[in-house]
Amino acid sequence: MPLMEFKSTREGYGDALDELGQSHANIALVCADLTKSTESHKFAQHFPEKFIQIGVAEQNMAGIAAGLASTGMTVFMTSYAAFNPGRNFDFIRTQICYSNLNVKIIGSHAGFSDGGDGATHQMLEDVGLMRSLPNMTVLSPCDYWEAKKAIYAACKIKGPVYIRLYRESTAVITKKAGPFEIGKWQTLAEGNDVCIIGHGPVCAEALLAKEKLQEKSVSAQVVSACSIKPLDTDCLLALANSYTKLLVVEEHQKACGLGSAICEYLADKHPVKVTILGANDVFGQSGKYHELLAKHKLDAKGICASVLELLEEKNST
């Protein structure tokens, strides 16, 4: 791969929020003692009158966010995904989603990107929790630029949005220019033998896998499914028409993530074989980010091997 820039999705959020603070008078930010590590500090420094330090109290934070939003504010509510929505799910469900309030829930350090903290601080169940809630939109950007655009898009719509972010600096694989729309997926690389659908920084691993596969004369399409809810059903149907087998890669439990959402839709509308790469009903552990990805076969090597297995299966049937 050519020389790449590495930046985190949480930085994309922090930069976007700081910019939005300039143009939107009605934004407030609530944070539970993780201002710097969630990249919320720029907004907090530039707009101290709109920043509310909650302390380590994620449930109270969600209730306060709902109260603020009910008066017409757009409220960003930030912590680690393990606690927000991990800790405060009931408050999000009842106070924010059931009341359909304009709160943007930022869950950073999702997936395995927790800086070695281990299973307690990793979050592999948040997509399932959030996508099962009525009124909720769920976004999981693949890189810095997609994160920035996702924050802008979330700010534009009324109602609750969950945005899943990652701690790690990962390859910037999309461009500053180019559209972003909630409910629309982005093809990162064209192909015609197999399709890999991912969300989050594992999309960069999928692109690296594509290069390895090319050496074996396999052409893979790679799609970033940032919009997990709503799904891009037009794109998904087109993919199901073009390919008999899809590979979904995600830093999430195989149960109830993007792969499950895709299966729920396609099982009814256009059944094809879907294989999901993710945490297989296990907790994470401490370790370097890439070691953890490798352990769960979510690195380029693991994805490449899974694609070849999938194609083998195809050839043998």
């Binding site: 509310i52 449930q59 109270n60 969600a62 209730g63 306060i64 966010a65 709902a66 109260g67 603020l68 939003a69 009910s70 008066t71 504010m73 009931d90 408050f91 009842t94 106070q95």
Partner: peptide, 12 residues
């Protein structure tokens, strides 16, 4: 939950 919501209203 109501008290936290009320706190948000008071803060707003």
């Amino acid at each position: 939950q109501g008290l936290s919501f009320a706190v948000g209203l008071a803060l707003a």
